[in-house]
Each structure stands twice: as structure tokens, then as C-alpha cells.
């Protein structure tokens, strides 16, 4: 079971990174969303997994799962929602005013998320 979760986090992050590397606004936004799924699951997993032990106090319950990471993930979900909304409107604004949604500027500078040790710098 743990391996399933671990691999899910891995697959989500890999997909996220790949999409981010496409360097076009829409895939990059999708990529960051995928990454935020990955990191939410990861943060949740940092409290270890447990089934049928929700952290809601009940009489007679013997064990609860770790509630703290859940609270952290909740905060993180909300924050990443806000961030996504902002980046979407900014990308939209950028697209609407330029008709081009390339994230990195062609000649002037390196794009974001470009690993700097890359050998070739095709924009």
C-alpha cells in the first residue's frame, strides 16, 4: 500500500515536472497543479498512513491517525488554490495582451524553470 502512495507521488511529480518544462503557460499551470497534488499527498503521507482512524474523537476509539499533517495539507490546498487562480489570470492577461503564451521571453532571458545546467538553450 505504501508503495502505491509513493509511486503515485512520484508519477504525479514526474508528470508535473514534464508539463512545467513545456514552458507554455497552459501546460505549466497544469504542471504546477499536478505538482501541488503530489506535494499535498506527500505532506499528508509525512504523518504516515492509517485506515479507518479519522482524527475525530469518538468514545471507545483506540487510535487516530496523525491530525497535524492533515491540517497542514488543508492550509496548503487553500493556498495553492489561491496561487493557481492568480497565475491563471496573469497568464490570461499576458496572453490577451500579447497573443502568445510562451512563458519565457525569446531572446532576452532564460525562462523560468529551465534547469540552468542544460546544455542547449533553445527557447
Amino acid at each position: 500500500m505504501e508503495l502505491l502512495i509513493a509511486s503515485a507521488v512520484g508519477v504525479l511529480s514526474a508528470a508535473g515536472i514534464y508539463m512545467v518544462l513545456r514552458l507554455r503557460t497552459f501546460p505549466v499551470i497544469i504542471g504546477t497543479s499536478l505538482l501541488s497534488y503530489a506535494v499535498n499527498v506527500f505532506l499528508f503521507a509525512s504523518g504516515r498512513l492509517a485506515m479507518n482512524a479519522p482524527p475525530v474523537l469518538r468514545d471507545g476509539a483506540v487510535r487516530y491517525t496523525d491530525p497535524l499533517p492533515q491540517a497542514l495539507v488543508l492550509t496548503a490546498i487553500v493556498i495553492s488554490f489561491g496561487m493557481t487562480a492568480v497565475v491563471v489570470i496573469m497568464a490570461l492577461g499576458s496572453w490577451l495582451s500579447s497573443d502568445d503564451d510562451l512563458v519565457d521571453r525569446p531572446a532576452v532571458s532564460e525562462g523560468d524553470a529551465r534547469a540552468p545546467s542544460m546544455p542547449e538553450g533553445d527557447a
Binding site: I5, A6, V9, G10, S13, A14, F42, A45, R48
Partner: peptide, 12 residues
């Protein structure tokens, strides 16, 4: 992805 998997697996 592999790094993330490894890290998660270690923790879990």
C-alpha cells in the same frame, strides 16, 4: 519523479 518516490517511500 524517482526522487519523490524514494523520499515518500523512505518516510512511509
Amino acid at each position: 519523479g524517482i526522487a519523490a518516490t524514494a523520499l515518500t517511500w523512505t518516510i512511509l
